[in-house]
Design a protein around this nucleic acid. Structure first.
Lengths: 328, 328
DNA sequence: TCATTTTGTGTAACCCGTTACAGATAGGAT
DNA sequence: ATCCTATCTGTAACGGGTTACACAAAATGA
């Protein structure tokens, strides 16, 4: 492996001079600079970031912990985060935890061992105490951990209200809800908004568990529609379950939206892949990823510690799956 | 930050002894070991992998370069790779290149600078010369780079033949093909198999470009079905385009499979999300990821250099979208 | 009992890039 | 001529683990 000392010898200067050329810092004579650059090129030298990190205690790497990389919601976030960090010449150290606390902890350890400069965390299981000891800048995405941790998220309760309001506006009264996992705070908030609003309007509350899973949701909705064939609309706690609901409806011969309206939440691409396309309360996914990355880089580079709480707005995407009820 | 010297002082031993305890290497007296472990625990010491890497020239990290992390095919590969590498106490350094050669090269540079022990590469743009200079173990996934690079893939030509044969078996003769991008070798192989087989059978060849993209495919198939309403089956070069084809068919009021059969390639989950579910020639995605990871780890840990070419078999998944033609 | 092997521990060099500090030269001001 | 500053370059220590080597103590064997 070519080291800075090899370059120094080739260019007949000291390692300090080579380092100055590399970092464009301090005084270097034009003649010397050219000679050093020539040597660098000739030996195709690449500085060793490991050695650099060891000394500078700055790795130019950030960690990003996501629950499941095969979930398109997270995949899109990853892309947005990478976009920002790459522009800032940082590298992203991605870890998928499979929703497993042990893996999350192991990954955080690895990140610490590899000296990442900061971490973006999406987790439903991690607690503040787990992160506290890391002692590096942190940004929470999608959910709040602690007062002190800058956070980027949407208001799941409010946006959920808006989603249901859309179904009410379309003239539905018998609206069923497919719940996500109870241990996920956002899922519970969306559910809570549903029960609160329905009760406030004096409308029937009917819900079933879909576990944020397509197949589970499909099963659950099948049973629900059998038991309550008069259901007019289904509000799913996320898009994946909405797709499951659509499959169930189609298998039972229900037409969407003529016989049943379906509404999702999140705004992932899947909602556009199926026929009919599914209406959804779309989170500004790309924007959330970018904001989180910017917030983290700010903390790293400027030491900004203001625990910013960025709350972004979702946007209602009305598509085929919720059109037509009023026209009946 | 707690260093090995802090631990040594706390346990009243030398740094060498602490290192021996950490690595379970060499002789350490039971008493001493306990005392050192106590100190490690008391100070909650974590070894600095950066320093370790610098000396050992072994980072216990591997790089994984994928074209697009939001594509479920790659996301599933990532998960499989991580599974194997994590078990071996390695960390995966994931980079998504967005199909951009410049980004790929930048990412490879970053990997090298951070001293990854090996790289798994999926790329349609990189050339052997770009990888050669890395001088670390490499495994190619999904496509062959060079004789010397161990590769894990399927036989795209043969499996494509089998996919089309399935449509023929179902009694179709007017089979159209949706092509992927011309610069992607696998895409061209799948297309080639189509033309070869159709011509050999004396059947009409009809194809259009879908660019591996849902929307583009949807448009292309709409036009194709307008121009050739007697088309009996569509064989898409990948599943994403198959979904696009289904959307187009449904929008035009064609029933699948009664009026039109649809067949995909890859075996991603999307094919199960839509109604009807789409038949596909499924790649053993998880298996490919695992094999690639194992191959790489073998090279790293045992210095095995046999340029293994692992060719796995795809499996035909027949589902609703290709059932019924013969019964008409 | 003495020689030999095994066990246990410490010192110091090493990995490679960075930078504080010192020394040298050139140019300008007084 | 003297002093000062700006420019240019090199030496050596540093960061945090690892390990070759040396040495001491304990165990084993004859």
């Amino acid at each position: 492996m070519v080291t800075i000392r090899d370059v120094a010898k080739e260019a007949q200067v000291s390692v300090a001079t080579v380092s100055r050329v590399l970092n464009k810092r301090g005084y270097v004579h034009e003649h010397t600079r050219v000679r050093v650059e020539g040597a660098i090129h000739k030996l195709s030298y690449r500085p060793n970031n490991v050695a650099r990190t060891l000394f500078k205690k700055q790795s130019k790497m950030i960690g990003f912990l996501v629950p499941d990389i095969t979930n398109p919601y997270f995949a899109q976030l990853v892309r947005a985060v990478e976009q920002v960090t790459n522009e800032a010449e940082f590298t992203t150290f991605l870890c998928s935890s499979e929703e497993d606390l042990q893996k999350e902890l192991r990954h955080l350890e690895k990140m610490q061992e590899n000296h990442v400069d900061g971490v973006i965390v999406i987790s439903n299981t991690l607690e503040w105490e787990h992160l506290q000891s890391l002692d590096i800048p942190i940004v929470a995405l999608d959910r709040t951990f602690h007062e002190e941790v800058p956070t980027v998220r949407i208001d799941n309760y409010e946006e959920s209200l808006r989603a249901i309001q859309h179904l009410l506006d379309e003239g539905c009264t018998r609206i069923a809800h497919i719940q996500g996992p109870a241990h996920i705070a956002n899922s519970t908030l969306r559910f809570q908004a549903y029960t609160d609003l329905m009760q406030a309007k004096g409308l029937p509350v009917l819900s079933t568990k879909g576990e944020y899973d397509l197949k589970v949701s499909e099963q659950a909705v099948s049973r629900l529609l059998e038991d309550h064939p008069d259901t007019e609309a289904i509000y799913a706690g996320n898009d994946v379950m909405a797709v499951g609901a659509l499959k169930a409806a189609q298998r039972m011969g229900k037409r969407v939206p003529e016989d049943l309206l379906i509404m999702g939440f999140d705004g992932i691409d899947w909602t556009e892949m199926v026929t009919p396309e599914i209406s959804t309360m779309a989170q500004p996914i790309e924007e959330m990823g970018r904001q989180a990355a910017k917030l983290l880089l700010q903390q790293i580079e400027e030491g900004v510690t203001a625990p910013a709480k960025t709350v972004l707005h979702a946007s209602l995407l009305t598509r085929q799956s919720t059109r037509g009820k009023v026209n009946r």
